[in-house]
Amino acid sequence: MVISAEARCPYCEAAHAAALRLRTKDPVLVDRLAVNYRHVELSHQDKVMLDFAVKLTHTPEACDGRDVARLREAGFTDVDILHIVEVTAVFNYNVRPATATGLFPNPEYHQLGRAAVKEN
């Protein structure tokens, strides 16, 4: 969700937000993550992971051993770090064709995982 928001990909943002709302059952959290994860109360480990994923998204050439050391200090294993890198890379890859082709999700995605409003 955060990578999709950082990349400003409309399809990815809507699709990943829907999936995260369904998983977390917390649409407010997902909306806040979509706006700016830096203003969401997260665990230290989640913040370190997201800071790294965003750095890898925006400035991959600036990533170095200090970033890996921060991830390890936050409790991630080398296998975890590889998964973080791979998932971030795949999401960044998928953003390109979706954005380049103007892909938008079906309207239903915007309502998935949101409580229905009861009419009086």
Rank of each mutant, 00 (worst) to 15 (best):
V68L: 06
V68N: 01
V68W: 00
V68I: 15
V68A: 06
A69H: 05
A69G: 09
A69F: 00
A69K: 14
R70I: 02
R70P: 00
R70G: 02
R70T: 06
L71Y: 04
L71C: 07
L71G: 10
R72T: 09
R72D: 01
R72L: 04
E73D: 15
E73S: 13
E73Q: 15
A74V: 04
A74P: 02
A74Q: 05
A74D: 03
A74C: 07
A74H: 05
G75M: 06
G75N: 12
G75F: 04
F76R: 07
F76S: 14
F76H: 08
F76A: 14
F76E: 10
T77V: 05
T77C: 10
T77D: 06
T77E: 06
D78G: 15
D78R: 15
D78K: 15
D78T: 13
D78C: 13
V79E: 03
V79R: 11
V79D: 04
D80H: 04
D80P: 04
D80I: 00
D80W: 00
I81F: 01
L82D: 03
L82C: 14
L82S: 13
L82V: 07
L82Q: 05
L82H: 05
H83E: 00
H83R: 03
H83P: 00
H83K: 03
H83N: 04
I84Q: 00
I84C: 02
I84Y: 00
I84G: 02
V85N: 12
V85R: 14
V85Q: 09
V85I: 15
E86Q: 13
E86W: 04
E86V: 08
V87N: 10
T88W: 00
T88N: 11
T88H: 02
T88Y: 02
T88G: 11
A89Q: 11
A89T: 12
A89C: 13
V90M: 12
V90Y: 05
F91K: 14
F91Q: 13
F91E: 10
N92E: 02
N92V: 12
N92R: 12
N92D: 05
N92Y: 01
N92A: 07
N92C: 11
N92H: 08
N92W: 01
Y93D: 06
Y93P: 11
N94R: 14
N94F: 14
N94P: 05
N94L: 15
N94M: 13
N94H: 14
V95L: 09
V95N: 15
V95Q: 09
V95M: 12
V95A: 10
R96K: 12
R96M: 07
R96H: 09
R96A: 13
R96Y: 08
R96Q: 11
P97I: 10
